[in-house]
Structure formats: structure tokens, C-alpha cells
Amino acid sequence: MSITRETVEQAARLARLTVADADKDRLAGELSAILGFVEQLDAIDTSDVDPLTSVVGATARMRKDAVTAGDEPERILANAPDRVTDFYAVPKVVE
């Protein structure tokens, strides 16, 4: 599978990454190399195996329904790059 400039642009868009035009061809080459490397898995017959869900082989542990957190906005907002009162602030979202 060879990655094109367009695929790089699409992956960058999906991942919300601004990629400079000048870097796109280089990235296409690098990503192609990685995909080329991982595609050796195609040779392995996995028809009789289930995907591994967890190496610990356990099932979900659950917690009791109780309020154990909250009412500490300073712990939540302490690192906010921009805030107004107890809200996070971001550039205006146009819906």
C-alpha cells in the first residue's frame, strides 16, 4: 500500500494536524515505508484466531454508583489556556 500526498492530507485532517505542504511528500514516503513493513502480516494465517481483547484476560470491573468527585473547578480548570469564570474558552464555534 503506497501512501499518496492526498492520503497524507486526509490522515492529517482526521488527526487534526496542520502539515506543511513541503513535508507532505516526505511524509508520504515515510508512511508508505511503515505500511509496507506492517503489511508482512498479510502472510500470516489468522483465520482461526480471535483478536486479542486483553492480555490480562479479565472482564470489566465495575464501581458502585456514588458521587465521589466534583465541586472542584480549580482542579479541573487550573491549566486552562483560556477561561472565563468557570468556563473553558475557545475560538468561536460556528455551527
Binding site: 492529517a12 488527526a15 496542520t18 508512511l31
Partner: peptide, 22 residues
């Protein structure tokens, strides 16, 4: 988002994020 992430992540991280998304 895209500018923050484009400037905030280094090349190897961006490469892996893109591979992962792909």
C-alpha cells in the same frame, strides 16, 4: 486544533498519529 497539534507535536509523534488514524 490543527495549528496547536501541528506545532505542539514533534515529527515522530505526528507520524505515528497519522499511521494510527490511517
Amino acid at each position: 486544533y490543527a495549528t496547536t497539534r501541528g506545532e505542539g507535536f514533534g515529527a515522530e509523534v505526528q507520524r505515528r498519529i497519522m499511521i494510527g488514524a490511517y
